[in-house]
Design a protein around this nucleic acid. Sequence first.
DNA 1: TATTGTTATACTCTATAACTATA
DNA 2: TATAGTTATAGAGTATAACAATA
Lengths: 157, 157
Amino acid sequence: MPDALTATDDVHHVDDSALRAFFGYRMKRSFNVIQADLALALKPFELRMLTFTALTLVVSNPGLRQSQLAEAMDVERPNLVTIVEELVRRDLISKERVPTDRRAYSLQATRQGRMLCAEATMAVTAHEEALLGGLGEEIRAGAIEAMNRIEQGRQRD
Amino acid sequence: MPDALTATDDVHHVDDSALRAFFGYRMKRSFNVIQADLALALKPFELRMLTFTALTLVVSNPGLRQSQLAEAMDVERPNLVTIVEELVRRDLISKERVPTDRRAYSLQATRQGRMLCAEATMAVTAHEEALLGGLGEEIRAGAIEAMNRIEQGRQRD
DNA sequence: TATTGTTATACTCTATAACTATA
DNA sequence: TATAGTTATAGAGTATAACAATA
């Protein structure tokens, strides 16, 4: 029990108002909640956010190359290697050499991969609906719009 | 230039619409942008997000104990040790034994720590204003409201 | 027995340089 | 020479178990 203090010291709960003035602070805290919930939703499928993201992109884009996948995921190429390895090892995707460019690999989801992706997608959708369903349409739309603009505002410099 | 491909293969840009259906995916991407900008704003002060957060909380809550700081930051106690160490080493905060409980340490910001915190706060504020200023008041308010509710786990409407 | 701060450890995510085999 | 994928490596951030000192 963390509220067991009594006499000598004030238990005034910590003042973080100075931090709450920052968008980034609030976002980190709420992102932690979202991510924990997402991890929970993906756990039954033995997927992490990164492997789920990669699998979904390969399912949606048959024949995708690793370099394209890395760029789409905003991940450095070396960090994608183990992710792809894991998905191949579990027979969720397959790698084939591209005939016209033997340096490259073309990624395809297997039938098993497409099925797992569909199931995981439903689970994640249900989890997010449970977590965000009570938000209200206009609040949710505002949040999504804000996130879109923030993400797109990155390119200028 | 990533659009240098021509004849043989389609360069159809990757379809991530299946992922964009997820709040968590959008949030991760936009959080990455926010965090990168925050790191840039804090770099001149040699602060990271975690050290800035800890410093600000100690400034706002003189006498705070490490366990309280850890709880406020949503960080496990062992992971706070190096953060506090770094701030103490740089003479931004000080640790004193609590007389009434000699297990605990009481954290205080030094004058130097308060000054650096104030400067860093201004820099972060300016950075966020530059990054988010074009959002529009109602969109921004919607995003903040959404993040607040997500963090609190509230589904009320 | 429980708690504060600490050590040790491990796992995930991320970032960079350098290698290989192709082009 | 440049690119695709890989290896090796290093740094953050995070999580748990176990310990010493103290309550």
